[in-house]
Amino acid sequence: MNQSAADHDIAGRADLLALLRRFYAAAFADRRIGPFFTEIAGTDLEAHLPRIADFWERALFRSADYTGNAFAPHAALNTARAMTAEDFGRWVQLWRATIDGLHQGPRAEQAKAHGERIALALHARLAGRDASMQGGDGGGFIPLAALELRTVA
């Protein structure tokens, strides 16, 4: 019997590491948000991966010792180049598509919802409490889960 890629829920750190590797591969390559990781932050994925896995392990399983400040690096990026509603929306789109491609179940849904809450909170904090989630082109921060992730040649 041939099973789909998304045949199980996120079960632990090994699943998180595989998920994060796939997500960051897509994010680094993305024309819209990739430069935040590659050009502005110069993210070293191998150095960053254990810390971000701790963050998600703590968020989903309450089992890791993550005590970092997730806001500070985003504030520094935003100072170098303002992050828009569209940038956060693209992050959410890639995050949800990556999870949907690998997992299904309550923890997968929790991870998608938590990612969206984080994006909304970061955008509000960086742009100001009254910031609109509407972007400059009118596209804004839309429910990207409803969109099909398309590959661009």
Rank of each mutant, 00 (worst) to 15 (best):
D7G: 14
A70P: 13
L126N: 08
L49T: 05
A72V: 10
A14G: 11
P35F: 05
A64L: 11
M1R: 12
A64K: 08
L120T: 03
D7E: 13
A18P: 01
D65M: 07
W91A: 04
A80E: 12
Q3F: 12
T84V: 09
L17A: 12
G89P: 00
E57A: 14
A76S: 14
W56V: 03
A72Y: 09
A75T: 11
H48T: 01
E86W: 00
T151E: 15
A146G: 11
L147P: 00
A131I: 04
A121M: 11
A26Y: 01
D9C: 11
L147R: 14
I118G: 06
D7K: 15
S4D: 11
R81Q: 13
S132V: 01
Q134P: 01
L20V: 10
E109P: 01
Q93M: 09
R129D: 13
A113Q: 06
G138H: 07
A124P: 02
L147E: 08
L19E: 01
Y66I: 05
N69I: 04
H48W: 02
R129I: 15
Y66Q: 10
A29H: 08
A113F: 02
Q93Y: 02
L20K: 10
H74S: 10
E86I: 01
G128P: 03
D54T: 06
R21W: 02
I10G: 00
D130C: 04
T43S: 07
T151S: 14
T151D: 14
I142H: 13
R32A: 09
A127D: 03
Q134N: 07
R62E: 10
A26D: 13
Q93G: 04
A11H: 08
H103D: 02
G115D: 00
A18M: 07
P73F: 06
Q134F: 05
R117D: 14
R32Y: 02
A72N: 08
